[in-house]
Computed example of a mutant assay.
Amino acid sequence: MSAWGQVGDLLQLVPVQRAGVGLLLAAFGLPVVGVVIVGLDIMPVRFAMMHVALLGIAVGQLVGLDPVVCGLVACALAGAGVAPLARTADGLSGAMGLLMSLAIAAALLMLALSGVNANGAFALLWGSILAVRPSDLVVLGVLAVAVPGVFVWRRRELALLLHDRELAWCSGVAVQRLTVVLLVLVAVSVAGAIRLTGALLVDALTLLPALAARRLGRSLVSITLWAIGIGVVVNVVGFVISLAWDLPPGPVLVLAAGAVALAAHLIPERRTSSWRTSASASPSVPSPPSLH
């Protein structure tokens, strides 16, 4: 049987269909989260949330609740809780580093003292794409709507915040509140991708499409659309390749997304103003939002 014939047979299986749907849903939300991560310069956030997710998974296994749901809740609370410490981009990175250290220490201590099998917790960090459940698809579906929805709803404020935090503050943007929303979305998105690629390879779905999109787009809207488009192509192509040649999907997705990002950076940079310039120079800077 040819490799492509094998793909057709595998696509008849329900777990494979769920995995494919999950990757498609992820492509509409997670690359947009990558735009936030790159724009706010908070690369450590994905590592911090990976460790927080492990802590939530350990708690779930200890008390007998769904580990992934516990990981999602833990990441959401951590994202909201760390925001007040993030007065600057450097402060945010520092807070994430502290959170990462405390979370992994607490998770390892809990696993050691409780006698819970650590293999199940750590397995989720590596991902198990064929173990995607309907509940995971619901989470990814919500993210696929919520994340782009926030960008559409607060596009101008986001453009200012991702360009310059102080400028956004002076322009009347509710910086602290918007930062909390973004951090919660980032945290939940990282946790939501656990079963697809594992937290260790979540960059394939978030950061790498965003890096390529920032090179190709000239406005926040175009960057966001590029990120989603690249995410869809990478996820579909990477998944099909992994099925055709019986390869682990996570590494294939990373390599495919990395190849696109590298190719995008080999394209000569356009001599045009970027969205960062237009965000600061645009005459349509948003008026201060009402506090009532």
Rank of each mutant, 00 (worst) to 15 (best):
V150N: 08
L102N: 02
V36H: 05
V142L: 15
P44L: 13
L40A: 11
V82M: 05
V45Y: 02
V73G: 08
V82D: 05
V52P: 00
V63K: 09
F47I: 14
V52F: 01
M110R: 06
L137R: 01
P67M: 02
I129C: 12
G60C: 12
G115Q: 11
A74M: 07
A131T: 12
G60F: 02
A118Y: 04
L102C: 12
M50Q: 09
L92Y: 00
A76R: 01
A106N: 06
A103S: 03
A159R: 07
L140A: 11
V142N: 07
R156Q: 14
L130C: 09
L77H: 07
G71M: 04
L162D: 08
V36M: 08
G60M: 09
V145G: 10
V150H: 05
L24D: 13
G120L: 11
H51G: 04
V132F: 06
W153I: 15
F47R: 10
A121Y: 00
L130V: 14
A144Y: 01
L102T: 03
G141I: 01
W153R: 15
A53K: 01
N117E: 15
G60L: 09
M100S: 15
A105W: 01
C70S: 15
A103H: 00
I37N: 03
A95T: 03
G91A: 14
V150C: 10
A80W: 03
P67T: 13
P67V: 09
R154L: 15
L99G: 07
C70R: 04
S114G: 13
F28V: 11
A131H: 03
V59F: 06
A83N: 06
A146C: 12
G120M: 11
L77I: 08
L85R: 04
G91N: 07
L25C: 03
F122G: 07
M110E: 12
L140N: 06
A144F: 02
G64D: 07
G79W: 00
I104R: 03
S93T: 08
R154C: 14
M43I: 11
R156S: 15
G22W: 01
V152H: 08
S128W: 01
T88E: 12
V69K: 09
A80Y: 05
L40F: 07
L54P: 00
G22H: 02
V63S: 13
G141S: 14
M110P: 03
M96T: 05
L99H: 02
P31H: 05
L99Y: 05
V59N: 06
L24P: 07
L85M: 12
F151E: 14
L25N: 07
V68E: 07
D41C: 06
V152E: 11
A58H: 02
A105Y: 02
L125D: 14
L55I: 10
V152L: 15
D41W: 02
G39A: 13
R156K: 13
P134K: 08
M100V: 06
E157T: 05
V116F: 01
R46F: 05
L54F: 04
L108R: 04
A58T: 08
G120C: 12
P148G: 14
A106D: 08
A144L: 11
A80E: 10
I129N: 04
R156G: 11
G97I: 05
L40Q: 15
E157M: 09
F28G: 13
A58E: 11
G149E: 10
W126S: 13
M50Y: 04
V145C: 10
A58F: 09
A53W: 02
G115F: 04
